[in-house]
Design a binder for these strands. Sequence first.
DNA 1: CTTATATATGTCTTTTTAGACATATGAAAC
DNA 2: GTTTCATATGTCTAAAAAGACATATATAAG
Lengths: 176, 176
Amino acid sequence: MSLRYALLGIILKKPVTGYDVVRIFKQQMIYFWSSTHSQIYTELHKMENDNLIDHELVIQETLPNKKVYSLTDTGKKDLIRWAIEEPLKPAKIKDNFLIKTTIFPFLPIVEIDKLLDEVIEREDKILSMTKKWQEHFNNQEERDVGTILTVEYGIRYSEMYLEWCKWAKQYINEIK
Amino acid sequence: MSLRYALLGIILKKPVTGYDVVRIFKQQMIYFWSSTHSQIYTELHKMENDNLIDHELVIQETLPNKKVYSLTDTGKKDLIRWAIEEPLKPAKIKDNFLIKTTIFPFLPIVEIDKLLDEVIEREDKILSMTKKWQEHFNNQEERDVGTILTVEYGIRYSEMYLEWCKWAKQYINEIK
DNA sequence: CTTATATATGTCTTTTTAGACATATGAAAC
DNA sequence: GTTTCATATGTCTAAAAAGACATATATAAG
């Protein structure tokens, strides 16, 4: 149910197409909410059905037509209500690498190092992409406070993850 | 599908009841995988059906009978195979507080402070519980390396979260 | 005495989610 | 010329998950 409020939050800032919503979501929200384009398109339909958003069809000559979504008054009110009234829930995480970590004592050291190196490489990439995005974002005239906060979160999360990986690697190799 | 390998990892270390699996899961894996007791019981049935685990029924006089699960050879092989061969996937997160963060500019400052304080209180509790568990765990004779690594992860995650919250609070109040 | 917590195990229904399948054009790279 | 990437929007099915409902006893706390 929270996904719809993530999407409302995106559309609130400026009217955008479903395609834009997907793009913005993947760039800015992937650090703290996971979803796919199929779910986002479906959710947009439901939101329109619930009168939280509406769209204006923009006919394009060369490229496919597009729907530009905006919040309705109901949508805006519901978003603010949700943010203030809806109870906070602890984050839900699904991290299959950390499950593997729990059985490290039963794996050959070579495989452990391979897993850790793979994760370090992956997180390094994510971190540098996030930093690039932050830099790009900082060079804009109008900087949205929500984005400043969540991008910083994304960077801190990746940095924590990387530091833990490096600590784990050292720890594993010390105890041999 | 990864849940079953989390559960196999728990049972691998020593034979336990479904009830124990739930308890151990909530204490040790909640930092990186979310699930409920209903899903865990259901998954245990499926795993037994797939011949990854089997159980011995222990009749108790006063308390209800219990099923003590162990890994089969198939289960053990499949767990190790999964850990080494199954591709790593980036963590999936669902954090409804961070969605609220994205629309902070549209909320009254009082509400923002309230939200941040609530999260700080919650994370403080989680962190101190995790630290208590780590301390208790460190006083045991046989310390499992998998647990050492993941508990450390849990602590670092909560610490990162708390530091970000405090930074966010200061940032918000600086820009007024 | 009554309530809460721990032990112990499940089912059922609805919602959410993942991931494959599906289509169509423009532009750029090779 | 052909492949790949970006634009643009969806459907469908199966699996996973959430959360309510369900039962029963022991023990400890108030």
